[in-house]
Design a protein around this nucleic acid. Sequence first.
DNA 1: TCTAAATTCAGGGTTTTTCCTCTGCCGTAG
DNA 2: CTACGGCAGAGGAAAAACCCTGAATTTAGA
Lengths: 220, 220
Amino acid sequence: MNHHFAIDLALVDDHKLFRKGLITLIEHVNPKCKILFEADDGIDLQSKLNPKSLPEILLMDINMPRMNGFETVKWLTENYPSIKVLVVSMVEKEDTIVQMLKLGVRGYLCKDVEPHELGEALASIASKGYYYTDFVTGKLVHTLQNPDTSGAAHHRFSQHEMDFIKLACSELTYVQIADKMCLSPKTIDGYRNSLFEKLEVKSRVGLVLYAVRNNLVSVE
Amino acid sequence: MNHHFAIDLALVDDHKLFRKGLITLIEHVNPKCKILFEADDGIDLQSKLNPKSLPEILLMDINMPRMNGFETVKWLTENYPSIKVLVVSMVEKEDTIVQMLKLGVRGYLCKDVEPHELGEALASIASKGYYYTDFVTGKLVHTLQNPDTSGAAHHRFSQHEMDFIKLACSELTYVQIADKMCLSPKTIDGYRNSLFEKLEVKSRVGLVLYAVRNNLVSVE
DNA sequence: TCTAAATTCAGGGTTTTTCCTCTGCCGTAG
DNA sequence: CTACGGCAGAGGAAAAACCCTGAATTTAGA
């Protein structure tokens, strides 16, 4: 895969200090690495990617403004499938990791790993094409063994349902929500009941908590 | 203050990769700095602080497991008031910054600043004792000018009120909450009404959202 | 094309929430 | 002693939320 002596890298992370630190660190643990460029987020990455000189490995954060890690990886697989992504995030949530693996990333590191592990990951991805730790495979296996128990099931919602959920996370009454959505209050009644059943909640408060926990609404 | 040629530092951050990166970065931007030790969080810091050789400046994160930045800074001012704290966090929320400044930290940097600013901050704190950027003072001035508008007011709650709020963030009815708190439903009525007025919310959902936004309840 | 599922809505009922006012109780500052 | 504020609680009523069953329309699949 790698025809140069160096491993061409690029970094996508919105925290400059972390990025710069990571760069000096990488130069220490693996001098063969060459950092082509850095980007603040997915949007920034799109403008900085030069098809004539693509990075071999992309170190990517997940939480970023404007265009996050998920969207960026999705965009990359469609536009530059040859680029291998190594996620470096502080998120340790199982479904986040699993979702990233489904999107085809070549490795997933938490930001609290030892520096030498970063070096190993880079070397492994450059030579073998991937780097999966026991931590990551452990999460993966656990997900396979417990597919959807404990309400961790990933529900999909129609546009109307999403709109309703967002409006339910407000101080509007159902009548006012119906008004905003240009639907009869009785229809809203229906949405509520079906969502209560689907999400196994018993009250509007339960629905709001579900939405918050699953990032269906922006809290801040 | 500083009797040595070197500036003695210590780092408190739960992300090893960031910490290590920061160290190599600091050694680049300010070779006079000497890192005494690193810690994962406040608890870890307590065990690693050696009274015979205290760091002059402590670089500290806010979001950490077990003992977070706020608690740690509070503990430091009580036990080691001579140590100067420089917060390095990705949190840019106004009241977080203001709260930290109230606790007496000597500087506040976001993780997306340029490395050279970190060097300037360290040099400034070592010589002048503080480093306050326009960004930070701007937030401070804004808070002074708008003391309590827009719901940013920091309310204090009695134990009963806190218990009620937490139980309100569940699928329990008020009667069940009254039962759990061993109070009359009518008393719960009173708590609800006074909280609605204090927090300027109009419904239980509004109360729940307030609690979530202000981290009164653990969401995850 | 026929059927099944999803969508939208109605009627009518129960439960819960919300909002009033008003009563004691207790501590404490004047 | 007494006025005042805070806390616990009561009665009652209106509004909102919740929960059925049923029915027309539209959409999707076999």
